[in-house]
Design a binder for these strands. Structure first.
Lengths: 152, 152
DNA sequence: ATGGAGTCTGTACTCAGATACAGAGTCAAG
DNA sequence: CTTGACTCTGTATCTGAGTACAGACTCCAT
C-alpha cells in the first residue's frame, strides 16, 4: 500500500491553486478528495492533481465551473446524459473554434500595435489606428446635467 | 454636415450590447460619445461602433476592461506610455499564444469526448478517461465532523 | 396634443468566482 | 512538551462585469 497520498497543501501547490479555491471546487462537486485521515484531513492522489489542473485549464478556456462539472460528471454509460452532453459538446467545440479565431485576430492586432510602439510607422492595422482616435478619457461626469438644467 | 450620428439604441443594437453596458464602459473611460444633443442625448459615430465591437472582442479574448482601457488609451506619441505598454503588449501576446494552445488542447479533449459519446471506444484521450474516474459528486458535507466529534 | 418608445441619471441588486478571517484542532521538529 | 506550520469548518467580504428599476425628460407619429 504505497503511501502516495497528498494533503491539501501538496495538491494545491502542485496546481497553483489556493486551498480555499480547492475547497470551493469540492463544495461545488468538482473535486472530491479520495479520502480523509482519521482526523479529518483531506487526502488526494495523482489523479486529483490531473483533475484539478484540468479544471483550471478548462476555466482558462472559457468554461464556467458548472460547465466543467457537467464535463467531469459525464457518464458514458448513461444514454440520456450522453445525448444532452453531445449537444453541449457540439456547442462548446463550435464556440472554442470561434474563440480561437478571435484570439488569433487579437494577437495580430496586438502585434501591429506593438510594432507601432517601436516607432515603425509600418502597416499598423488601419482599423485599430482609428480606434486610437480621440474618444477616450473618462467622459465628463456632468455632460448636460439633468434634473436642474436640462433646458426646457 | 452629414447626419451620420447614432443615438444610444442604434449603437448598442449594432454591437449587441445593452445600453447600460455601454454607459458602464463610458463611466470607465472606454467609450466616450462624440457629443451630446442639446437635450443631453449621447451621440456616436461609425468609429464608436468599431470601438465598441473591439471592446467586446477583446473581452472575449480574455482581456479585462482595465486592460482594454489601457490599450485604447495608448498614446503612440508618448515615449513613456509606449515603453510600459510594450511590456504589457509583450506579456499579452505571450499569454494569447498560450491560451490559443490551451484552447486547441481543450478542443481536442472535447472532440474525443464527443466521439466517446457516440459509442466509439476509439482513442479517447487517456488523460481524460482517468479524469472521469470515481471522484465526482458533491462530497458529503460532513466528512469528519469537527467541533463535536474530531476524536480526542 | 397625446401616448408610446427612447433616453437620461442614480442607486441598488445580481452573479460567478475567489479571498479573508476567526476559532479550533493537528502534526512534527527541536 | 512546546511551538510554528498545517488543516479544518463556517461565515463574511471582495471584485469584475453586468442588470434592474425608479423617476424624469424627450421625441415623434398619429
Amino acid at each position: 500500500m504505497r503511501q502516495s497520498h497528498l494533503k491539501m497543501g501538496e495538491l494545491t501547490r502542485a496546481c497553483h491553486v489556493s486551498d480555499q479555491a480547492a475547497r470551493l471546487y469540492e463544495r461545488m462537486g468538482l473535486l472530491k478528495p479520495v479520502g480523509r485521515t482519521a482526523k479529518g484531513y483531506r487526502l488526494y492522489d495523482a489523479e486529483s492533481v490531473e483533475r484539478l489542473r484540468f479544471i483550471k485549464q478548462a476555466q482558462r478556456s472559457g468554461f464556467s465551473l458548472e460547465d466543467i462539472k457537467a464535463l467531469l460528471h459525464l457518464d458514458l454509460q448513461d444514454e440520456l446524459t450522453c445525448a444532452s452532453m453531445k449537444d453541449l459538446l457540439d456547442r462548446k467545440i463550435q464556440a472554442l473554434s470561434e474563440r480561437m479565431k478571435e484570439l488569433a485576430d487579437m494577437r495580430d492586432v496586438l502585434q501591429s500595435l506593438r510594432q507601432a510602439c517601436d516607432g515603425e510607422p509600418g502597416p499598423l492595422c488601419p482599423a485599430f489606428l482609428k480606434l486610437c482616435g480621440p474618444q477616450c478619457a473618462p467622459s465628463d461626469p456632468n455632460p448636460a446635467r439633468r434634473k436642474t438644467p436640462f433646458q426646457r
